[in-house]
C-alpha cells in the first residue's frame, strides 16, 4: 500500500503533467491543423511559434468575465469549474506503469480503483453537466440550444460508450484499468475487440464534443453553443477541459485497447510507451478534426441510437458467447 506522502506527490505530478501537456497539445493542434490545410500555422510568437499557447492564455486572462443580464451568475461561474474538475479527476485513474516499474512502493498511476471504468463513465457524464448548466445559466438562446444539444448528445452516446468497454471488462475480468492493462500482456485488446475499439473511438469523439460531433459548440450555426456567453478564463476553463478530455479518452483507449504500458524494452520504459500511445490518440483526434465536417443533428441522433447502440450490444453479446464457450 502507498503512503500518504506518495499519494500527495503523485497528485502534484499528475497536475503538473497535465498543465504542461495541455498547452503542448494546443500548439500541436494548431500547427497540425495548419499542415493539414497546407498552411504553416502560428509561427509569430517566440521561435517557431512555440510561445503561442502562452500568448493565448495571457489574452484569456486579461479578458473580462462578462455575463448577460438574463444569466444566473453563480451557476454560470460554477459550470466551467464542474467541467474542468471532472476532467482532471478522471486523470487519476490513468495507468502509466505497473506497481514497481521504477522500484519502490508505488505505481505510476494516481489511484488503482477497482471500479476504474465506472469512475470514468461517472465523471465523463458529470462533465457534460458543466456544458448543460453553463449553456442554460447563460440565459441566451444560442447557449440554450447548445446545452440542449449537449444533453441529447450525452444520452445518445453514453450507453454505446459503456457497452463498448464492457467487452474489454468481460475479457479482462476486471474493471480496474491496471488489471485490464496487465491482462493485455500477450495480445492487445484492439485485435479481439476491434468492433468495440471502433465504437469506443466514435463515442469518445462524441464524449469530448469535438469534431465531427462538436454539436454543442456548433460555431457555424449556433455561434458558440454552450460557451457563447463565456469569456476570459471561464471560457479558457471550458477549452482546457475539452483538451483534458481528449487526453483522457486517448489514454483510456490506449489502456483498454492498445496495450497500455506494454511495449518492447525494459519495464522502466512503460510510461514512455503509454505516453506515445496516448499522443497517437491525440494526433488521431486532430487528424479527424481536420478531415470530417460536423454531422447534422438528426444524423447524429439516428447514428447513435440506430447504429452504435445495436452494434455495441451485439459486440457485448458475441464477446459473452465466446467467453462462455471457451
Amino acid at each position: 500500500m502507498e503512503s500518504t506522502l506518495v499519494m500527495i506527490v503523485k497528485s502534484i505530478v499528475i497536475f503538473a503533467f497535465i498543465l504542461q501537456i495541455v498547452p503542448i497539445i494546443l500548439l500541436a493542434e494548431r500547427k497540425l491543423l495548419g499542415r493539414f490545410q497546407s498552411r504553416i500555422g502560428p509561427n509569430r510568437v517566440g521561435p517557431k511559434g512555440l510561445l503561442q499557447p502562452l500568448a493565448d492564455v495571457f489574452k484569456l486572462l486579461s479578458k473580462e468575465a462578462s455575463a448577460p443580464a438574463t444569466a444566473v451568475p453563480w451557476m454560470m461561474a460554477i459550470a466551467p469549474v464542474i467541467s474542468i474538475v471532472t476532467a482532471v479527476a478522471t486523470l487519476a485513474i490513468i495507468p502509466f506503469g505497473p506497481f514497481d516499474a521504477w522500484g519502490g512502493e508505488f505505481g505510476l498511476y494516481g489511484i488503482d480503483v477497482p471500479i476504474a471504468l465506472l469512475y470514468f463513465f461517472a465523471f465523463g457524464s458529470l462533465g457534460f453537466y458543466g456544458l448543460v448548466l453553463g449553456g442554460w445559466a447563460s440565459g441566451s438562446k444560442y447557449s440554450f440550444l447548445g446545452a440542449m444539444r449537449a444533453a441529447a448528445q450525452l444520452i445518445s452516446y453514453e450507453v454505446a460508450l459503456g457497452l463498448s468497454l464492457l467487452g474489454v471488462a468481460m475479457t479482462a475480468g476486471s474493471l480496474s484499468l491496471v488489471d485490464i492493462v496487465e491482462a493485455q500482456d500477450g495480445m492487445w485488446y484492439v485485435v479481439p475487440q476491434f468492433v468495440g475499439f471502433c465504437i469506443f473511438m466514435v463515442a469518445g469523439f462524441a464524449e469530448t464534443a469535438r469534431a465531427p460531433f462538436d454539436l454543442p459548440e456548433g460555431d457555424a450555426e449556433i455561434v458558440g453553443g454552450y460557451n457563447t456567453e463565456y469569456g476570459g478564463m471561464r471560457f479558457g476553463s471550458f477549452f482546457m477541459a475539452e483538451y483534458i478530455e481528449v487526453i483522457v479518452i486517448s489514454a483510456i483507449a490506449a489502456a483498454c485497447f492498445l496495450g497500455g504500458w506494454h511495449g518492447p524494452g525494459p519495464v522502466a520504459l512503460a510510461p514512455l510507451w503509454m505516453f506515445l500511445k496516448l499522443m497517437a490518440g491525440v494526433f488521431f483526434f486532430i487528424w479527424i478534426r481536420a478531415s470530417l465536417p460536423r454531422l447534422r443533428y438528426d444524423q447524429l441522433m439516428s447514428f447513435g441510437w440506430k447504429v452504435l447502440l445495436p452494434l455495441a450490444t451485439l459486440n457485448v453479446l458475441v464477446t459473452a458467447f465466446v467467453l462462455v464457450a471457451t
Binding site: F36, S38, R39
Partner: peptide
C-alpha cells in the same frame, strides 16, 4: 486526403 496535404507541404 488531409494527410496528403501534410505530405505535400505548405504553400504559404
Amino acid at each position: 486526403t488531409t494527410f496528403g496535404r501534410v505530405a505535400e507541404g505548405t504553400y504559404t
